[in-house]
């Protein structure tokens, strides 16, 4: 595998991962505060926390496609 391909895949994945991490940190902080005041909202907060993971998953898909398809 050419090094450019590996670097490209890594950038694609890292971009999604960093964005997801940042978004989840914000949601997590707000979610923790919400649960402290309204414990019954825990279920909704967990779902909200999972929402930004789309970005890292799509980053992963793009990275995988780069590795598989770019020869």
């Amino acid at each position: 595998m050419a090094w450019e391909v590996a670097i490209g895949a890594a950038i694609a994945f890292a971009g999604g991962a960093i964005a997801t991490g940042w978004a989840q940190s914000r949601i997590g902080a707000a979610g923790a505060a919400t649960i402290a005041e309204r414990p019954e909202a825990a279920g909704s907060v967990i779902v909200l926390e999972a929402i930004p993971e789309t970005m890292v998953i799509l980053g992963f898909v793009v990275a995988a496609m780069i590795v598989i398809m770019v020869r």
Binding site: E53, T54, I57, L58, F60, V61
Partner: peptide, 11 residues
Amino acid sequence: GNILSYVRLMA
């Protein structure tokens, strides 16, 4: 975007 989100099943 919603449809593409199902890729998580694989990922």
